[in-house]
Design a protein around this nucleic acid. Structure first.
Lengths: 342, 342
DNA sequence: ACCGTTACCGCAAACGTTTGCGGTAACGGT
DNA sequence: ACCGTTACCGCAAACGTTTGCGGTAACGGT
C-alpha cells in the first residue's frame, strides 16, 4: 500500500490542464494566468507536492550539486570546513553531497565514482591519508570536471588549491617553543606521504636552523594518526638518549594522546616538555593543560574553496587558470607551551 | 568546451547497435551474445563510461538511497553512527545521503524536504536540539515513508526507534559515584526539551532515592550544549551553598568544559568532585583526568537502525509493526570517578 | 524439406520533469 | 468590421536510462 508521490501529472489531471502549464505555474513563469497559477499552487500545497529532483536535474542536464570528499568528519577541521563549504555553496544556489574516505585510498576512488554517477558538477577534495597515487583525481581534470583540493593536497596535481602556509605555520610554532626556552625540539609528524606533513617538517627545520638548534632526523617521528601509534611514537621519542624539551605535533588529536603518554611517564607539560600542535580544535581550549595550537581560517578557506570551484563550473570556456590560494595561520598560545621565563 | 559525459547512446552509435543492447550488455543480462557483450564492455571501459544515476533511478523508480539526518557530525557519536549506518546500508546495496541540522529545527525541515525531493526511500533521523514540534517528521509517516529515529527521539512519534536505556545508564553512572563515596551528586543536563536528557535525569534521581541521597531540583542544571553555557552552568552549580561532590554530565564534550571550569577554580577531580559522563568519546581516554563515561554500542545501533528501516522499505504491505529497540550501555570507569576508598 | 525452438537484438514506452514552438481566443486600434 | 497583437495554454521532444514485447535468423529434430 505504498502510495506513490504526487507528480505534476496528478495536479494537471485534477485541474484539467496540461503538465506544461502546471510546471510553468509552479516555477512562477509569467505566461500563466493568475487564476490558474493560484489554483495550481494551492493544490500543490494541499497535496504537499514535492518536485522530483531526479527528473528535474535530468531534464535540465544540470544538478547544481558539488561533491565534497574528506578523510573523516569526526575531525573538527573537516567538519567545520564542510559547514563552511555548505554555507557558501548554498548562497550560490548549489547543494553538496558529502563522502568520507575514512583515510582509505580505495574508498576515495569509489566515492569519486559514485559522485560522478550522481552527476555532480564539481569536486572539492581533501585527499585521504593512504592516497599515494593521483590517477583517479587526474582523470577528473581530463574529463574537464572542475576540482579544487584543500588542506590534504599534492603538488603534482594541476588544479586549484586552497591551503595554509604550512611552512610558515610550523616555523612560527617552532620559534614560539624556542622563545619559551626549548633547546631540543622534536616533531611528531603525519605519514611520510602527506605533503602537508612534510612541509611542516621543513618549516620546523628552518626555524631550528635559524636559531642554531638543528637536530638530527631521529627527532622527527612519523605517525599514522591513530591513537595507539601516536602513543608508541611519543614513547619512542621520549626514550631518546637526549629527549626533547619541546615537541611540535601535527594535529591536536595526536597531541591529546601524546600528552597523555607523557603524563603517564611523569613528564610535566610545559615544564619538562612544551608543546604546540595544529588545528585548534575547540576541545584544546579545555584540555589539561590547555593546548597551544595553530588555527586555520576555516570560514575563509571554505568560501574561497567554493569560489574557486564555482568559477570553473560556471565558466563557458576552459581557459580559467588554476589558482593556489595560500592562507595565513594564527598561533593560539595556551598553557602547553607557556613557560615562566627563567 | 566542456565535454558532455559519454552515454549508452554514444556506445550504441559507435558499435552500430541499439541502446537496449548496450544497456543489457552492461548489466550482464543473459540474452546478449558474448561477442557483442565483450565489445560493449570494452568500449565502455575505454571511454570510462559512467552510468547516469539520475536516469537510472528515474527509469526504475527506485533510488536505493536512504537519508540520514543528524545534529552535528563533529560529535564522535554521530560521526561513528554514520559510519556504522553507511556500512550496514552498503551491505544491503543501499547508499546514504547525509545532512546535518546543526541543531536547528528549521534546517531539519529543509533537510527533510531536500531529501524527499531526492527521492530517498527512507529516513534515519536523530532530532535536533531545537526541535520541539514533530509535524515535519509525522508528515513522513503520513506519506508512508519509512523512518527510524535513533538517540535523539521523541516518545510521541509513532515510528521505530533505536535507543539506549537512558534511565538505566544514568542510574548506573550515579550509583557508581555513590559507591565511590559521593554524598551530594549534581546533574549537568541537556536542554529541557530533550527526552534523552530527561530520562537520564530520572535515572539519576532513582539512584539517589534508592540510596537515600535525594537532592533538590537546584542540583540539576540544564545546558544548551555550547561550551560557554556549560561553563556558566558548572560555575553556578559549584557556587551552590552546598556544592556537589559528584556530578553526572550529559555528554563528554560538556564534561571537558565543565572539568576545565572546575580546575580553574582549584577544584580537584576526582578528589573534590567525581565525574561520570556520556558518549565515551575517544579523547576521553586521554583527557586529564581520564574521563569515566557511558559507552553506547554504536556498531550494533547502526546495523539495527538500518535493519529496522530496510524492513519497512522492502515490505510490500504496511502492516509492519513499529519496533523500539533499547540497547544496553556500558560504564567505562576511568580516573575522573575513581577514588581511593577511605 | 519443413517447422518449432532458441538466441539475439531492436522498438517504443515509460520514469517526471523542462522548454521551444505553435495555436486559439480575446482584445484594442483603425 | 477587420486585423495585428497579446495573453494564455498545449504538444511533443528531450534528458539517459530500463524493460516488455515482438521480430528475425539460425539451428536441430523429424
Amino acid at each position: 500500500m505504498k502510495n506513490t508521490p504526487v507528480t505534476i501529472k496528478d495536479i494537471a489531471r485534477a485541474l484539467n490542464i496540461s503538465i506544461s502549464t502546471v510546471s510553468r505555474a509552479l516555477r512562477g513563469m509569467p505566461e500563466i494566468h493568475p487564476d490558474t497559477r493560484k489554483a495550481v499552487t494551492q493544490l500543490a500545497e494541499e497535496l504537499d507536492y514535492q518536485p522530483n529532483q531526479l527528473a528535474k536535474n535530468l531534464a535540465k542536464s544540470r544538478t547544481r550539486t558539488i561533491g565534497v570528499i574528506v578523510p573523516n568528519l569526526s575531525y573538527y577541521y573537516f567538519s567545520a570546513m564542510l559547514n563552511s563549504i555548505e554555507e557558501a555553496a548554498l548562497q550560490s544556489g548549489y547543494s553538496v553531497l558529502v563522502c568520507q574516505t575514512n583515510e582509505s585510498y580505495l574508498r576515495e576512488i569509489t566515492n569519486i565514482q559514485n559522485l560522478l554517477r550522481s552527476q555532480v558538477e564539481g569536486f572539492i577534495i581533501s585527499l585521504s591519508r593512504d592516497t599515494d597515487n593521483y590517477e583517479h583525481v587526474e582523470r577528473l581534470t581530463r574529463k574537464n570536471i572542475p576540482l579544487v583540493l584543500f588542506d590534504r593536497y599534492a603538488e603534482s596535481i594541476n588544479v586549484s588549491k586552497v591551503i595554509v602556509d604550512n611552512h610558515a605555520a610550523a616555523f612560527k610554532a617552532t620559534e614560539h617553543l624556542i622563545e619559551n626556552g626549548c633547546q631540543r625540539i622534536g616533531f611528531l609528524a603525519g605519514p611520510a606521504q602527506l605533503v602537508l606533513s612534510n612541509q611542516r617538517i621543513n618549516g620546523y627545520r628552518a626555524a631550528l636552523a635559524k636559531h642554531g638548534l638543528s637536530v638530527g632526523d631521529q627527532y622527527v617521528f612519523n605517525c599514522d594518526y591513530t591513537q595507539e601509534n601516536t602513543i608508541m611514537q611519543t614513547l619512542a621519542m621520549m626514550s631518546l638518549q637526549q629527549p626533547p624539551d619541546g615537541v611540535v605535533i601535527i594535529s591536536d588529536r595526536m597531541a591529546y594522546s601524546a600528552i597523555y603518554a607523557m603524563q603517564q611517564k611523569g613528564i610535566r607539560i610545559p615544564d619538562d616538555v612544551a608543546i604546540v600542535s595544529f588545528n585548534n580544535e575547540p576541545i584544546s581550549a579545555y584540555f589539561s593543560p590547555t593546548l597551544s595550537s595553530i588555527s586555520q581560517p576555516i570560514q575563509e578557506m571554505g568560501t574561497e574553496t567554493v569560489r574557486l570551484l564555482l568559477r570553473e563550473i560556471e565558466a563557458t570556456d576552459n581557459t580559467i587558470p588554476k589558482e593556489t590560494k595560500v592562507m595565513e595561520t594564527q598561533l593560539i598560545v595556551r598553557g602547553s607551551s607557556l613557560r615562566q621565563r627563567s
